[in-house]
Design a protein around this nucleic acid. Structure first.
Length: 369
DNA sequence: AGTTTGGGGCCTCTTACATCA
DNA sequence: ATTGATGTAAGAGGCCCCAAA
């Protein structure tokens, strides 16, 4: 079971919205990564903090990094907490190279295993570090390691030929091995087993980003294909995706916390205002006891359709003919809430833990319809 | 059918390194 | 040239899932 905290447009059905901002806290505190298996297991607790439909919707990932959350400041935030199953979020198509558009069934990831079949010609990626003695990791049980190692030899032979536009690496574009690689090889020669920090080139990072837009997780074939495409080790690709997921989660958490903070402030203001109005109404009632002699009306909220319905209860105090405020009408429907309580008509709807109306036969007993 | 076991994937925390101001 | 901050690749440990025994 996962806890899904979705920050999206509450005026739309955020469970089917194309891009709700959400992170899912599963029992492992992991981000749901659109993995089909996890989605099947997810029983989402969707907590949505909506903004006006016309307001900008915070975009995912890349826009998070631009800290667009500040743009979402809106004092009229309707807040919605939904107990809803999480619905898979469609991933928008990207301009990912065709070779990296994997299908979810792993079936189309075979591109990389057939030499360079289907993949664009090996681009100018430098190799930060090429293993001296084979691949340090081939995690796939049905590994394609043999073919990959064969191809790897080809890549290795091309390493010093490939030029990279990266400033950091461009200094070695003239056939010089990259510094880190050189140092690593030196250590290897010295038998040292110290870890070396190796930067990926901009092209490699961009390529990984594009693939990350498609899939937040990789299956072994995808990982191998990507590693082959980028002349990286599968372990490097795997680590990059792990770190990328962690960064995404961190930023998402920051954005969501900011949303929650603003929402809390909004609700605090709302609560303060309601208290003030309540005091005013009580003062009004005290000063003019006949002014607010309305029938005892209980406003209730239908959890299914989120419609306000009122029921007029007959009490001893309400049996007397109501004396309404000037210019007001006494009704019992939500469509005409007494204007003596104007905020009920204007306040944003706040429904903690509302549920959607799944019953098509749902109807109200009240006249409100 | 239920249990155990090993492998793989992923997450989280952490470290080490590269880069920049 | 040095230093602190920041970003990030990578290691380590743990958890979960799954298939095979």
């Amino acid at each position: 079971m996962e806890l899904g905290l979705s920050l999206g447009d509450a005026n739309t059905n955020n469970t089917t919205n194309s891009s709700p901002k959400s992170f899912f806290l599963s029992k492992k505190n992991v981000i749901s990564t659109c993995n089909d298996d996890e989605k099947k297991k997810s029983l989402g607790f969707c907590m949505a903090l909506g903004i006006n439909s016309s307001s900008e919707r915070v975009q995912q990932d890349e826009d998070e990094e631009n800290n667009t959350s500040e743009e979402g400041t809106n004092n009229t935030l309707p807040v919605q907490l939904d107990l809803l199953p999480l619905v898979p979020v469609p991933v928008p198509p990207t301009n990912l190279p065709q070779s990296l558009h994997w299908s979810s069934d792993n079936g189309s990831s075979e591109n990389g295993s057939s030499g360079n079949g289907g993949l664009p010609a090996a681009r100018g990626f430098d190799v930060n570090r090429l293993p001296a003695a084979g691949m340090d990791e081939v995690s796939s049980p049905n590994s394609v390691a043999s073919s990959f190692q064969m191809d790897f030899g080809l890549f290795k032979s091309c390493v010093n030929i490939i030029g990279v536009g990266n400033k950091r690496n461009s200094e070695f574009a003239g056939g010089e091995p990259e510094r880190a690689s050189s140092r690593a090889s030196d250590d290897d020669e010295n038998g040292a087993n110290t870890r070396k920090k190796l930067r990926l080139s901009k092209e490699q990072s961009a390529y990984l980003e594009e693939s990350f837009k498609e899939h937040h997780t990789l299956n072994p074939k995808q990982k191998l294909a990507l590693a082959k495409q980028l002349s990286l080790r599968p372990r490097q690709v795997e680590v990059w995706f792990q770190n990328r997921r962690a960064r995404t989660k961190l930023k998402q958490t920051e954005v969501d916390c900011e949303y929650l903070k603003r929402c809390c402030e909004t609700l605090t203001d709302e609560n303060r205002r309601l208290h003030k109005e309540l005091q005013e109404l009580r003062a009004l009632k005290t000063s003019n006891p006949f002014y607010m002699q309305l029938p005892a009306t209980t406003l209730t909220m239908c959890p299914s359709c989120e419609r306000v319905a009122s029921t007029t209860t007959t009490t001893s105090a309400a049996t007397a003919p109501p004396i309404t405020a000037p210019g007001t009408t006494t009704t019992t429907t939500s469509d005409s809430i007494p204007k003596a309580i104007p905020f009920l008509n204007s306040r944003p709807r706040f429904f903690p833990f509302t549920t959607t109306n799944n019953n098509p036969n749902h109807s109200h007993k009240s006249a409100a319809s």
